[in-house]
Design a protein around this nucleic acid. Structure first.
Lengths: 343, 343
DNA sequence: GTGAAAGCGCTAACAC
DNA sequence: GTGTTAGCGCTTTCAC
């Protein structure tokens, strides 16, 4: 492989000169046009390729960003990633994937980030327990760090997420405007206020209270990370059945995610319950299938790509130290909601 | 940051010794247990972290694998990626994301891979045109390279994909077994035999011929990469309408992907056409929403994760030079197919 | 078994 | 403007 010395030799200049020419932007040193051109020419003649590893080693900066992600095969992951990639790309950074399994994000993951001298880390949906003992270590390393959609964002760490609260509020207001009163909420595994599902649940409760429907609140919990291949026997299905068996039955079910909403719609269909005529259902996320579903799902669109871009932006230009950034999410009304049955 | 010299100094040995201890596996040099332990101890005492950048620079190997992916926000991407990550992780490799837009995969992308001295490259759904002039350049660099689901796999390059042909054949046989004869195919943007949609189409035609239904073949093309947010006005919707307006109407539509199938089912529902009672529909991929759809979609499950793992495996241990690897895909029968209406 | 020393390819003072 | 030079942190002969 051609090195800088080869170029220097052939161009009849020193290695330093070549380096200067190649990094024009980063240095105050000016090289005369003739020399410059000669160097550039020989470089391309020889097929010279800079060695980023060597550069990174010296400068200590790797222009690589770690993207920690749970081994979840969901669409949101790839959409946030897509945004992060674009932003990274435009700034000559790379995204390096670091996966972790089983709810455990061990020190080894961080270790590898340090060993590679990463320029920053994005943690997507990082489990709380792991973060608790990992965050101090991260702080110590000095590697810029942001979380995305953290279920339990520590106060001393930037968390980027969609505006779950206003999104859920919009859902409730939409349903109420249609005439619904018995609006139930179907959440994720746990009901913690801090979790994503919890944030949406809280917004649901607040919104219900604000419109005077506090008494009508009805909440059930399914499994946020359900294995969809066997969803029929899952806790989400069980929770749905509880809701559909209730008397009086809710006229609308606000779900914590699109996938949960789809389970509800499936189960309703199996019972011969018409959505939206007899039951309104809403989701949250706006995954691809939401618009293709039968009926198309009323939901809240999350700005996934912008979340990814924003995360990268914060890492590469450590701006203001706000503790959290909340990106707008907006209601998308489709066919799964309608006025409640007149009965 | 603590370096190897610091450890050496404190442990009272030379830098070389430390290096030996730290890389025990890769070298034939043996270090005595006492020295070894002393070094290890001081290293952890000092909080030493190896500098992978430096190691990579010297050895010329980066243990980083590039994952080229179209800016497509689809679920298959993340599922293949998940598999690749796991395999990489288990072998102490990294996945580095490289995105590209607009059907163009320019030399710049490859350039960056060379500059980082990547240990291998995985190209996911790489556009044919770009590959044609990129492949020779890649060959030249000597960087191991595999393609995944290439629409036009060059003969001199390993391509990994699911068995589209047998999957589609299983679909047709399933439909025929149910009594269908007028089975249409709804494909992607173009009908090239080489494209993925084309491979499925070809299998469809072959299977139809084999069961003596050659005359019943009916093929329409939608847009493989449809923007689903506006699918109603897209070419896939138009193609679907053509199929549903045909006389006699097909009793089954085999679609080239799950998302296309969902569009068909939506449109059928809008016309009051019952799926599966009046029309059977099948997909391909088995995305998450397929099992949650209403009705649940009969489709072919692709071994996405295994595809990802396999790609990585081929890169890090350049095994036999088979031109292509085809992984089994299997039929998943759900509720969107039924015997044709008796009429 | 351990150490000395020569680099890997490049950057960044500092001279001239 | 350009060249000299000293490293960056590590691996790897080659002696001892």
């Amino acid at each position: 492989m051609i090195t800088i010395s080869d170029v220097a030799a052939k161009a009849g200049v020193s290695r330093a000169t070549v380096s200067y020419v190649l990094n024009e932007k980063n240095t105050s040193v000016k090289i005369s046009a003739p020399t410059r051109n000669r160097v550039l020419e020989t470089a391309s003649e020889l097929g010279y390729r800079r060695n980023e590893l060597a550069r990174a080693m010296i400068t200590g900066k790797s222009r690589m960003l770690g993207f920690w992600v749970m081994q979840s095969n969901r669409e949101p992951v790839v959409r946030v990633l897509a945004g992060a990639m674009k932003e990274a790309d435009e700034n000559d950074y790379f995204i390096k994937m670091l996966g972790f399994d089983n709810d455990t994000l061990d020190s080894r993951t961080l270790e590898r980030c340090i060993e590679w001298r990463l320029a920053g880390i994005i943690a997507f949906h990082a489990p709380e327990e792991s973060m608790r003992h990992l965050l101090p270590q991260i702080k110590e390393t000095g590697i810029p760090f942001v979380m995305v959609d953290s279920q339990h964002p520590p106060t001393d760490c930037l968390n980027i997420e969609a505006d779950h609260a206003s999104g859920m509020t919009a859902i409730v207001e939409h349903l109420v405007a249609q005439g619904h009163r018995r609006i139930a909420f179907l959440g994720g595994r746990n009901g913690n206020e801090d979790s994503i599902s919890g944030a949406r649940e809280k917004a649901y409760r607040n919104a219900m209270e604000r419109v005077g429907l506090h008494r009508e609140c009805q909440v059930e919990y399914g499994d946020w990370r359900a294995e969809f291949s066997q969803w029929e026997s899952g806790t989400t299905a069980a929770a749905t059945h509880r809701l559909l068996n209730a008397t009086p039955r809710p006229t609308a079910i606000a779900c914590a995610s699109d996938h949960i909403a789809m389970i509800v719609m499936r189960l309703a269909a199996e019972r011969g319950l018409q959505v939206p005529q007899q039951l309104s259902v809403t989701g949250f996320d706006d995954v691809t299938a939401a618009t293709l579903y039968n009926p198309p799902l009323t939901t809240v669109a999350q700005p996934f790509e912008e979340i990814g871009r924003s995360a990268v932006r914060h890492l590469i230009s450590p701006s203001s130290q706000q503790p959290s950034q909340v990106l707008p999410a907006h209601l998308v009304v489709r066919g799964s909601t309608l006025k409640p049955p007149s009965k």
